[in-house]
């Protein structure tokens, strides 16, 4: 393992419903190293194993064999909460990434402190509000005036932008994006995608993004993975990725 490795996945196996007629081998001996500064797009058919892969990295799904290490720490069996020290995530459903009953400021406050212990400090402060207002105004979504609005009253695009801000607030070592623009209309979807790209490049974040949009996969990021039938069928980066065309990619799907 070199210094530039962020995440290392070794011989990862995931089998759903083992021993039953519905048994499905979703991840087949996956090996993957994510280097510092990588912005990886992951594409693949429905059911190919993309989301399963992301969920095993995030800790939402236990792995059946193999190991996951982040910055040298074995997190194969770590809980979602303890992984959040390194890993942030934006969900596909805008409703999942934020707490609707809480205000914008409360959601941000929650995401700011990651490795928390029992703590009786008051979360609200004028200084914090000012900082949040500055951060929100950069999103250009009109959220800076809505610090005390409950998140359930925001639009899907606003919620997703907030989610993105929350996920990146604490400078995660790895940012997971799970089709995070799929539930948005085309215009908002491209807005959020631009914003994502800006934040990632500005903060030099390492990121893994699942997408169904070929154009986004080709346009953004320095590396592209194609997952098919539980295996990584294609892993291109740098200049090779830039040369890749949509037609070639579509051919590979079949």
């Amino acid at each position: 393992m070199t210094n530039s490795d962020i995440l290392k996945i070794q011989n990862l196996q995931k089998v759903f419903f083992p021993g039953t007629i519905n048994q499905r081998h979703i991840l087949k001996d996956i090996n993957l190293t994510i280097n510092s500064g990588d912005f990886i797009s992951v594409i693949g058919n429905n059911g190919a194993g993309k989301s399963t892969l992301l969920n095993t990295i995030a800790g939402n799904l236990p792995v059946d064999a193999g190991s996951v290490t982040i910055l040298g720490n074995d997190i194969t069996n770590a809980s979602v909460a303890s992984r959040s020290k390194w890993i942030s995530r934006v969900f596909q459903d805008p409703k999942l990434g934020t707490a609707g009953e809480l205000t914008v400021a409360e959601n941000l406050a929650l995401s700011e402190k990651k490795h928390r212990h029992f703590n009786l400090h008051f979360y609200h402060s004028a200084e914090r509000d000012r900082r949040f207002t500055t951060l929100l105004s950069r999103l250009n979504m009109g959220l800076e005036d809505r610090l005390n609005t409950q998140v359930k009253y925001l639009s899907g695009g606003q919620r997703q932008a907030l989610s993105l801000l929350m996920a990146t607030l604490s400078q995660p070592d790895l940012l997971l994006l799970d089709e995070h623009t799929a539930a948005l209309d085309p215009y908002t979807s491209s807005e959020v995608m631009h914003l994502t790209n800006d934040i990632i490049s500005e903060r030099h974040l390492t990121s893994l993004m699942i997408t169904h949009k070929m154009e986004d996969a080709l346009q953004y990021g320095n590396r592209l993975l194609m997952v098919q039938d539980g295996q990584i069928k294609l892993d291109v980066r740098g200049a090779d990725k830039q040369r890749l065309r949509k037609a070639e990619l579509l051919d590979l799907f079949n």
């Binding site: 995030a58 707490a99 409360e106 959601n107 406050a109 402190k113 490795h115």
Partner: peptide
């Protein structure tokens, strides 16, 4: 407090709360 906020968030959205540590 921070813990009080975390408790409210847990009741509202567990997946998001866990993802935020």
């Amino acid at each position: 407090t921070e813990t009080g906020l975390a408790l409210q968030a847990t009741g509202n959205n567990q997946a998001m709360s866990a993802a935020n540590g």
